Simulated scan of single mutants.
Amino acid sequence: MTSPSLSAAPAPLHGGPDAAGIPVLDFSTNSNACGPCPEALHAVQTADATRYPDPAYTALREALGAFHGVAPGRIVLAASASELIHRITALAAQQGAVQVAVPRHSYGDYAQAAQMRGLKVLRDGGAAAGLQWACEPSSPLGLTDPALHTWGQGDADAVWRVLDCAYVPLRLGPEGAWTGTPSPRMPSACWQLWTPNKALGLTGVRAAYAIAPPDCEEQANALTALAPSWPVGAHGVALLQAWMQATVQQWLVHSLRTLGDWKARQQTLCTDLGWAVHAGSLANYFCAQPATTTLQSNLAALRASGIKLRDATSFGLPGTVRLGVLAPAAQDALRAAWQALPGRTIPGCVSTGSGETL
């Protein structure tokens, strides 16, 4: 296998703060706009940062195991989801993976981790010997990942199958909405990767964990052995401990109702602006195609005014933006800023070419 050069893959693009600082109104991330969760924030702020956490995270793993109804030996702690994506890819490569399957439109770290290890990336998911990724709901479109249907048919060719559950707690109704505890219908025959910081509105706290499938504790131990000591610091431990509290989950469930109302309003606003909204998003974000022929300059102008949208080109959706759902006041500011831009296209419906309006 040929080792890639250090410059083989460009730096991944992300939403949120950038070289220009913190956006005043940030539609570019999928963080829960009702947050931060007050109780989780208090836990992080009062964490004892003067001491190391238990390097084995014994109590935390036991609690997370109880929360998900699995043995503690199936829990693997991580500095972040992104860190664990790279660690899982590294271990899969050690175990013989040569191909990685990723969704057609997906988080860039899946492919980047594979490319930096010389692994072939297969788009559109599918059956790839080695490592398969899925995300539920998907990002950036917020849809049910079609790979899960294939996984459910019992095809076991893959060394690793990993379901990114980052947005499971931010899934909105009417069906499959988060209820405060992990659904027993979550697939158990694959790895699950959990990152509660988005759901709690605390994306600056980097902490995550994975759940190994049944009878895969040996792989879980191997994955843990690849980590540096103390991958999760005191603040991350406090976040994960808070995540399991009933009152925190009650706050989250209540926030989903608000996000659902805000989402409907924001989608209507986009339609009023003449943007083609991609239908079907199940989460607190969605994609739209703005009515403009100068999207890049428009996004730059919005960013200069303190408003940031996520350009979806890196997801394989040129001409499209992903918008996290924000409060009505932020939505109204976006409307005013967009309408103030020069050279806008007159609002109107955009056809998909199949008789259906996006």
Rank of each mutant, 00 (worst) to 15 (best):
S138I: 00
R265A: 15
L323E: 00
R61Y: 04
Q331M: 01
V350D: 10
A78P: 04
E175R: 14
V321L: 05
A210E: 01
S354Q: 15
D261E: 15
T258F: 01
A291F: 11
G274I: 01
L240W: 06
Q289E: 07
A242G: 10
S297W: 09
R161L: 08
A127C: 10
S188K: 14
S188Q: 14
P213K: 02
G180N: 06
G343V: 00
V44T: 09
V76K: 03
I346Y: 10
T271V: 09
A43C: 09
S139T: 13
T58S: 13
T181Y: 03
S188C: 12
Q45S: 14
D215P: 04
G152Y: 00
G176P: 03
M186P: 12
S305E: 12
T294Y: 11
D215N: 14
T268Q: 15
G152R: 08
P53L: 08
L202Q: 05
A19P: 11
L193Y: 04
V98R: 14
E218Q: 15
S138A: 09
G280A: 03
L172S: 04
Q115N: 06
V168N: 01
W262M: 00
G21T: 00
A8N: 13
L282Q: 12
T58F: 11
C349M: 15
A210Q: 04
P290D: 02
R310P: 03
N197K: 10
C135N: 09
A304W: 03
L119E: 00
P347I: 10
R87C: 12
P17E: 06
Q219R: 14
F67M: 02
T46E: 09
G343Q: 13
F315Q: 01
Q331S: 09
G173K: 05
V168T: 05
P72M: 07
A330P: 11
D54P: 06
C135E: 05
W251H: 04
L269N: 00
V232G: 04
P182K: 11
V237I: 10
A49C: 15
G274P: 05
C165R: 07
D164S: 02
L269E: 05
A129S: 14
A90S: 13
C216V: 07
A56C: 10
T313R: 13
G353H: 00
S139K: 12
H42F: 10
A177S: 12
T313I: 02
G260T: 11
G353V: 11
L252N: 06
K263G: 07
G152T: 09
L341H: 09
A71I: 02
W133V: 09
E175T: 14
V24W: 13
D109R: 09
W251L: 07
G126R: 00
G173T: 01
W275L: 00
L302Y: 08
A234Y: 06
A92S: 06
P228A: 07
T50V: 05
A207Q: 08
C190R: 04
T144Q: 12
A300R: 14
V248D: 04
A49W: 11
G125P: 05
L358E: 14
